[in-house]
Design a protein around this nucleic acid. Structure first.
Length: 165
DNA sequence: CGTGTGATTGTTAGC
DNA sequence: GCTAACAATCACACG
């Protein structure tokens, strides 16, 4: 523990026991792992691959980005990232499918790009020892040639009206 | 100066 | 099929 200022209250799960037993959560299916790290602990210092495609933000993260902005406006004093995380998580669950739709839409697109990046990344991995692909310097000079930003989004809204509730 | 950590959920890759 | 790990964010503390 390096950081964690003394104030780290950490009143998270200990006191409050998430009673969302119901069904949600993956733990219900097969007992949560319990030991070991369930959900990450931050990355240590892998930094291994030169250009490893970082995972694009999930629908939740997309929503969080927007939520953070709003949250900060209402809580400019709050500097705890965890605060936004919790608040965001709570709100996120409050959203309906329809509300999450736009976020999911972005998430869907993200997969397309990610998949592509992965392919490129995989190929690079294959030719790693063959030829120094590392393009040390060169290239990297003129990268942009993107006239049209191909944003391609918001095309057909399905209008699912999935108001399940 | 850099990086780890704290909290959220989702998603994906690996076994 | 399940599990583990990682994705952003912000401020701070430690080496």
């Amino acid at each position: 523990m390096k950081g964690s200022k003394g104030k780290g209250k950490k009143d998270t799960k200990e006191a409050l026991k998430p009673v969302e037993d119901k069904v949600g959560k993956r733990k219900a299916a097969t007992q949560v792992v319990k030991s070991s790290k369930t959900q990450s602990k931050k990355k240590k210092a892998p930094m291994k691959d030169p250009n490893k495609p970082k995972r694009p933000p999930s629908a939740f993260f997309v929503f969080l980005e927007e939520f953070r902005e709003s949250y900060k406006k209402e809580h400019p004093n709050v500097k705890a990232v965890s605060a936004v995380g919790k608040a965001g998580g709570e709100k996120w669950k409050s959203l309906s499918s329809a509300e999450k739709a736009p976020y999911e839409a972005k998430a869907a697109k993200r997969k397309s790009d990610y998949e592509k990046l992965m392919t490129a990344y995989n190929q690079k991995q294959e030719s790693v020892d063959e030829d120094g692909e590392e393009e040390s310097d060169k290239s990297k000079s003129e990268i942009n040639d993107r006239d049209d930003e191909e944003s391609g989004e918001e095309d057909d809204e399905d209008e699912d009206d999935d108001d399940d509730d």
